[in-house]
Structure formats: C-alpha cells, structure tokens
Design a protein around this nucleic acid. Structure first.
Length: 882
RNA sequence: GGGCGGCUAGCUCAGUUGGUUAGAGCGUUACAUUGACAUUGUAAAGGUCACAGGUUCGAAUCCUGUGCCGCCCACCA
C-alpha cells in the first residue's frame, strides 16, 4: 500500500516522465516489433511559437501513435519543422522594419538577410521542438526532419530534375499573381479573395468605336489589344475581325481587334469584353488562344513589377501608381465624353495572404509545373494521378487509395482538381530552396545551346556546350509547398532506397487542418503519386479549427491568443490534451475556453484519486494478472461494463471518433466506477483482485489520451515497468452481459428511489431510516447490503411478493415520520408525470396500423412498457388513497 | 454564381443504419462535507430538436422548400 499526494501535480511528473520515455528508446520504431505504422507530423512553420491548433494536432497524433504502439505496432511518428519560405521571410522582414531597417532586402542584401532569417528560424525551431515535448508527443527524435535541411534539399532538387526531365516543369512567360509589397509571385492558393466596394466604368475607347466596354480597372485599358464578343451576339457579329487604331494616351496608339469568344456572356454588362492580355489571367488565356488560332493579338504590359505604370502606358501615366493612373484616365474619359456611366459594385479582389496587398496580374517568365501534360510512359497527367489516388486507387490498385475523413472532403477535393491550373513554382524571395537551374553567361564564345537552362542536382563546373566556367544559378527560390509536398517520403530518406522507405511508405495515417487541404494534401498526393507511384498516406483525417467562445479564430491580432505552454503550466499537459480533443468532430470547428480546461483538469485529478483509492485497496499490485472471478452482482456488472468500454474505445479510435472514445471512457470511469463500484467496494470488501484488474485496464485505456498521469500512476502502482509499451487490453466479449447490466440497473433504481424519497422529505443525510422492500426477484435481497449502505438505512427488511406481477417489480415502504401533505404532493406529481405517458402508449397500441406495421419485437416492447407504467400508476394511486 | 457545414437545455456538444418518456459536461438551484477526491457527492429545475410541408404505423434522424450563422470555390469584364 502506498500513500500518494491528495491531488495530482503535473509539474512534479511531466518532464521526468518524458525523459524516461525518451531514454527508453520506444519512441524509435527500431526498438519495437510488429507491423509498421507511420505518421508524419505536419511540420509547424518556423515563424514563431506553437499555438492551440498545434496542441490539437499533437494530441490527435499522439493519441493515435500511443494507441497503435500499445496495439503492438511498430510505430513511427516523425517530428519536423517547415522553413515556410514566404511566411518566414515576410515575418522577419516585418520585424526588421520594426527595428528601423526600412527596406531589408536592399539594405542587407541576399546573403545577410538570409542569415538573419536563418537565425530566426533556428531559434523558433528549438522553441517549437521544446513545445512538442511538453505536449508529451511520442515522436522519434532521431528522425527529426526540417524541410530545409540537407536531406530534404537533396530530395527537392531530385524531384525538380525528374519533373524537368519529364517535361512537366517548364519555363514560361505568362501572367502571374504578383505581390508588389512582397516583390514576389504567389500561387493561386495563396491569393485570398476579399470583397470590396469598387466602381464599374462603362465607356468607349473613342467616339467612333462601335462597342461599349465595362471595367473596374480603367488604367489597364491602356494595354488593351482586343475586344471580345460572343460569336452569337447579333449586335456585334458584324464587327468580328475588324481592327481599329485608337489613341487613348498610351505610348503607342492601341491596335484593337474585335474577336469572337464563346465565354463572353451576351447578357452580362455590355456583352463585350475589353481584352488586356498583360493584366488579367482570363485575357491572357484569350491571348494564347488567339495565338494558337494563328490570329494573334498584342500584349502590352502597362503595370510594372514595382506596381507603377510603365513607359508603355504613355507619357501621361508612366511612373504613376495604379490608383492615380486610374483617376487620371477616368478624368480623361469624362473630358472626352467617352464615359457612359459609373456604377458602384462589390468586387472580389485578390490579395496576398502573407503581405496583404492587392495582387497584380503581371506577365513574367517563371517556372511552372504542368498539370495536364501526359507524364512520359505513364499515359496520365499529374491531374489524373491526383484524381485516381482517391477514386479507384493508383493503377486501379485499391491498396493505393487514400481514404478521407470526413468523407465529404473527398468531393471538395475532386472538384478542386478539376479546375486546377499550372502551378507557378518560382518565387522571388530569398528564403527557400534555390531553383536547381544554372545558366551559362559565357565569355562571348557562347553557342545558341548555351541559352538553355542547365538543370542538375549540383552546380556544374562547366557549361556543357561552351565549357565556360562562367555559370550562375537561377535567382529564384521554390514555392515552399514544393518541399512540403515531399514530406511523407523526404522524411524517410528518399531519393535513396532506404529501409525506412520500404517499411513506412505509404504512411498509415495523417492528420491536418482542412484549411491546408488544397495547399498540402493535394501536393503530397501529386508528388508521391508521380515519384513513387504510391499514395503518400492511406488515411487522412481533417480536423477543424479551434475558436474562442464567441467563435472567433485565435490570433495575436485579435488578442484572444492562448499559449499552450501557459495552459500546461497551470493545468498540465494531460488536461490540455483532453480539453482540445473534447467535443470535436472530424472536419468541424470547435470552441475552446477556460471552463473546458478546468473540467479536463478535474477529470485528470479524478483519475488520480480513484487510482489512489484502488491502489490502497489492492493487496498485491501486479500487472500480470488474470481476469478475476466475480463474486457479486456488482462485480459481474463492473466487469461487463469494463469489457464494453474496452470495445467502445477501440472501435471509436479506429473510426477516428477520438472525442466519442474519450467520452465513453470518462463515462465508465467516473459514473460507473467511481460513483458506484468503488462505493460498493467499501461495503462488499475484498475486491483486491478485481480492483487490480480494473486499474490495470483503465490506465491502459486512458494512456493514449492522458499519457503523463497514467504513466505516473502506473509507476506508483506497479513500479518498474513502463505503461507506454504495455499491451492494449482485449475486451472479453463473454463478460459483456446485458442481463447483468439490467439486473444491476434494478438495484440502482431502488437506491435512486430511496435517495429521491429522502431528498423530497428533507430527511437529513445523517439520519438513518428504516425501510421494507417488497420484491419479486431474489437479486434484490441478495444486494441488501449495498442498498442499505447507499440508502443510509438503519434497517432494511424484505418481503417476498405474493402476487406475481412484473418480474422486475419492487416496492419500498419507509418507516419514518414524514409530512403527510408532502407525501401526497410527491405522489400526485409522480402520477401527473406518468398519466400522459400511459395514455399515449395506449393510443399507440390501439392503433391497428402500428400493431400491424411495426416489427413484432417493437410492439412487444411497447406493450411491456405500457404494462409496467400501468402497474406503477396503479400502485401510486393505491398509496395516494391510503 | 456554385458548393459545403451548422442550427438539439442558459452555454459547449452527443444522439451510430427511423423505434424507451431526446442525453452528457459546464452553468443554475437545494442539500451534504473528518471518508480516495470540494479539482467532491446526492438530487432538482431546464428542450414544440431553426421553420414549413411531405414520406411512414412511427421522424431530431429520410425527402422537398425557407430562414439565420459560418466557411470554401469561381476569369463574370
């Protein structure tokens, strides 16, 4: 027997326990046997510290990892961090600007700025890793990965080269999403659409121009080269093919060609679209289409990468910001009576998710990944692979199919890839994987071939064509998601053919927030399907977002930020884990607030205290014990409930219903075990074996959810061994007995009735009363001791029922001074509650359609219910008359 | 414009293929307090399951429509 402190103090145990786990070597799968089970941690960005969302992710991953480890799997959970190219550079630049460095890129230059970012990244990396440990996450630190370390860089270059050699990566002059503030491109996924009021201007290029057009961006009209109309539009048909030369103030007169395009809607606006190929992705597509049709139109960039109007915009506009140029151009239209009208509208404007400024569409030469092109020798495009991975499975192999939880996200994913355009890979920021492409800037002796980019894994010494040593690397870096897309296998040593690759890929399960579905899941599927012909993971689970009490996202800017470390400090890691996991459903957001953490802390403490109680009553604690033989109904009952709980917990973890699994376990622990069985143990006595068995089992069940407190108790109770690698309990199905549970339910009902009666008659809890129970079944007197104890009865007598009614029936009479009026009132209240029910049951059973239509078992059940209710009612009426 | 999710007790949420008198936690109220635990116990109050139709013997659950809240996608100039 042991004396444990009254309350669980997480601080006393957590760090030491984590150290013991780490030292045990069981975080590393090499020390485990069994079937491999792998989870890759979504690497947190090295932009700062972990927030609550990460706490949720760690709780989810670790619960799964610990469960699987105890199930006897060879579990690998790889920790890591993401260099998060653009977000990190944006963040550090912002900090530097706050320190007074106005233009960090100009003032520091590439090398120094990258060094600063690296410092910052390394710093936040170590903070983050420390936080992951605090959460109790059982990951293999020997396989720690970073998207920007040597191994991962090697994988990135390899992937780029393979894709380039396959003709999927190309360099092309196209319209990109350009952030003027960030001085970089971004992908379509990083553009956030924001609704803003805007003006829609309807105007003509000149007095004799036959068609009106409308626009929200008048200043770009200085670069128009065509007007597109629907070929079926009778108003404009006759103009198709005609060319007009007009002067609206641009450097050169505009050459406007009237062209036909099916996508122009006749009924929208003026039914004509002013085409600005340089500054609209749609118009650029028209430009390309026209080129393909051998009926080319021009392309005039009038906005530069600095966000100012270019020379091509004309002497009156060049150097102006777009806003000023817009006003000026509109003024000019008005002066020349070309403006038909201006309407106020709400417009969706694309903004940069990191820099926040409005995204300009600007044509540039960039690196692209082709989504639609057939992969050499595979008869499929990347887009096809991405689709097949979730539908039939890659190569029609069901083993190569990704299962998505919740299922509705599968449809969203498929819809998304349907509209996928080529992925712009290159970024002009400096923090990130430099594109593995080199150019010969030769010594004048260059050949034409020297203009070709050289794509190699490492810097070549010579130009392969002219042998010049004058070779420079592409200035640009890769989209950060390119390296994240490789995560499931770059973490396992790819492109080398490692043992880990063989064992752990495809990975078993991954979890992530739904907000990065398009950014990350899609690209992992793309990369893995392409390079390995394997899916990256067999199962993917999407969690929702944690919000505060009023439904707002947690963020520093809205001042509602909660630091997981503070929560751990105050309540412990187990409480934090439980509070983020409680009440969540796959794919749904959930709310997080103080009371939830308190509730979790109370639960942790409750578990601690029932364990204390049990440990004190176990004469020979031992972890290798056989199932005890039940001696009483209560024993049978608790064993049945325990077995049922083992089953429920397992089933629900495997269906990713973490919340439900936990609730079932809580329900058993608190309501069945603590409130009933442990109380019974006080009267029935001699429960050592059973208590040992129960404690043993529930600690294992609780471990994935609350690793620290369970390990602490385990160590106190069964010192020497480690709970983390104990075998997960197997439900003894034979012990699950509905009959036993129903029988015990009768005893509970009797006790509740006595308690109620006492409460209603305001009988002091201390006061012992006498009672007589008329019973129909022997199990009632057999549990007399329990009833007497719970009901605080002085004496309890039993009378066997003479008339046989319902088998479960019992009646309690109290020998005690009570207020007769109160008793009448109580009886009336009870009668009033039952009467309507009896009436509705009678009506239901009188309904021939119900009796005829419903299954016999249902009808029989309803009949029984009616009989019981009627009997109870009769008895109450009888008592009332007395 | 298209789509998705939510609407169940004061609050946060369960409710698994339609079948007890719709549940839990928190909060509230009353009572208790040397007991493994006040980070506790016992009990009570509290719900037209957003609304309107429909299918069915029977609907919180299935179908249709409406409303409100939240989110995602889209090149509507």
């Amino acid at each position: 027997m042991k004396e444990l402190p009254k309350a669980y103090e997480p601080k006393r145990y957590e760090d030491e326990i984590y150290r013991k786990w780490e030292e045990s070597g069981f975080f590393n799968p090499d020390g485990l046997s069994g079937e491999p089970y792998s989870i890759m941690m979504p690497p947190p960005n090295v932009t700062g510290v972990l927030h609550l969302g990460h706490a949720l992710e760690n709780a989810l991953m670790d619960t799964m990892a610990r469960y699987q480890r105890m199930r006897g799997k060879k579990v690998l959970l790889v920790p890591g961090t993401d260099h998060a190219a653009l977000p990190t550079q944006a963040k550090v630049e912002k900090l530097l600007m706050q320190e007074g460095i106005k233009n960090p890129r100009q003032e520091l230059g590439r090398e120094k700025l990258v060094a600063k970012i690296k410092d910052f990244a390394e710093n936040s990396k170590s903070t983050i890793l420390g936080q992951i440990k605090k959460m109790g996450t059982s990951c293999d630190w020997s396989r720690l990965a970073y998207t920007f370390d040597g191994y991962r860089s090697k994988a990135v270059n390899e992937m780029f080269k393979r894709m380039y050699d396959d003709g999927l990566i190309y360099r092309g002059y196209r319209v990109v999403n350009w952030s003027v503030k960030g001085q970089s491109t971004c992908s379509d996924d990083e553009v956030i659409h924001v609704e803003r009021p805007a003006k829609l201007y309807t105007f003509k290029y000149s007095k004799d121009f036959p068609i009106m057009i409308a626009t929200t961006r008048p200043e770009t009209k200085l670069g128009d080269t065509a007007v597109a109309v629907n070929p079926g539009d009778d108003r404009y048909k006759m103009y198709i093919g005609k060319k007009y030369q007009i002067d609206i103030g641009a450097a050169l007169p505009l050459q406007i060609k009237i062209i036909a395009d099916e996508n122009v809607e006749i009924n929208f606006g003026t039914g004509a679209l002013g085409v600005t190929p340089a500054h609209s992705p749609t118009d650029f597509e028209i430009y390309e289409k026209q080129k393909a049709k051998d009926d080319p139109i021009g392309l005039i960039p009038v906005i530069g990468s600095d966000g100012l109007m270019t020379d091509a915009a004309g002497i009156n506009y060049q150097g102006l910001t777009v806003e000023v140029a817009r006003e000026k151009f509109v003024a000019w239209l008005k002066e020349n009576s070309l403006l038909e009208k201006e309407d106020d509208i709400i417009q969706n404007v694309g903004t940069s998710d990191r820099f926040g400024d409005v995204i300009e569409a600007i044509p540039m030469t960039q690196w692209w990944l082709d989504m639609r092109k057939e992969i050499p020798g595979r008869d499929k495009s990347l887009k096809d692979l991405m689709r097949l991975a979730v539908t039939t499975g890659l190569n029609n192999d069901p083993a190569q199919k990704v299962f998505i939880t919740p299922e509705r996200f599968k449809k969203l994913y498929l819809d998304r890839i349907l509209n996928l355009r080529d992925w712009c890979l290159s970024r002009q920021i400096w923090w990130g994987h430099r594109i593995p492409v080199w150019y010969c800037v030769g010594d004048g002796a260059c050949k034409i071939e020297c203009k070709q980019p050289i794509v190699t894994l490492e810097k070549p010494d010579y130009c392969p064509h002219c042998n010049s040593k004058n070779i420079i690397q592409d200035e640009d870096t890769l989209d950060t998601w390119f390296s994240s897309g490789l995560w499931t296998f770059s973490t396992l040593g790819w492109p080398d053919k490692t043992e880990d690759m063989k064992k752990f890929h495809p990975t078993s399960w991954i979890q992530m927030g739904y907000e990065i579905r398009d950014l990350w899941m899609m690209r992992m599927i793309l990369m893995s399907s392409y390079a390995l012909k394997q899916i990256p993971f067999k199962n993917v689970y999407f969690h929702g977002m944690l919000r505060d009490e009023s439904g707002k996202k947690f963020s520093k800017s809205s001042g509602n930020n909660i630091d997981p470390l503070d929560v751990i400090k105050q309540y412990g890691a187990d409480a934090l884990r439980w509070s983020v996991l409680g009440g969540i459903a796959p794919g749904n957001d959930s709310k997080f607030y103080e009371e939830k953490i308190e509730g979790a802390r109370n639960l942790v403490n409750k578990l601690w205290n029932i364990s204390r109680f049990m440990v004190a009553r176990i004469s020979e604690p031992g972890k290798d014990i056989v199932e005890p033989k039940p001696k009483t109904l209560a024993d049978q009952w608790i064993m049945s409930r325990l077995a049922g709980t083992v089953e429920t917990v397992k089933e629900n973890i495997e269906k990713y219903n973490f919340s439900y699994a936990g609730e079932a376990l809580r329900d058993f622990t608190w309501n069945d075990l603590a409130d009933w069985y442990l109380e019974i143990a006080k009267v029935e006595g001699d429960k050592s074996e059973t208590l040992n068995y129960i404690l043993n089992t529930i600690l294992k069940l609780w471990h994935p959810f609350m690793p620290f407190v369970t390990e602490a108790i385990w160590n106190e109770a069964y010192n020497g061994s480690m709970l983390m690698v104990e075998k997960w309990p197997v439900a003894n199905q034979e012990k699950i007995s509905l009959a036993v549970e129903a029988d015990f339910g009768i005893i509970q009902k009797i006790i509740v009735q006595i308690r109620n009666w006492r409460a209603e008659h305001k009988i002091e809890p201390k006061e012992k009363i006498k009672a007589v129970i008329t019973f129909g079944r022997d199990l009632i007197p057999a549990n007399g001791g329990v009833i007497k104890f719970f009901g605080r009865l002085e004496t309890l007598a039993f009378v066997k029922k003479t008339v046989t009614g319902e088998a479960t029936d019992f009646e309690i009479k109290f020998d005690c001074q009570v207020d007769a009026n109160k008793e009448m009132e109580r009886l009336r209240k009870e009668i009033a509650a039952i009467e309507p029910y009896v009436a509705s049951q009678e009506k239901k059973l009188a309904n021939e359609q119900f009796v005829g239509g419903a299954p016999a078992t249902v009808v029989a059940g309803e009949r029984k219910k009616l009989a019981e209710a009627k009997e109870k009612l009769a008895k109450l009426n009888e008592q009332l008359i007395k």
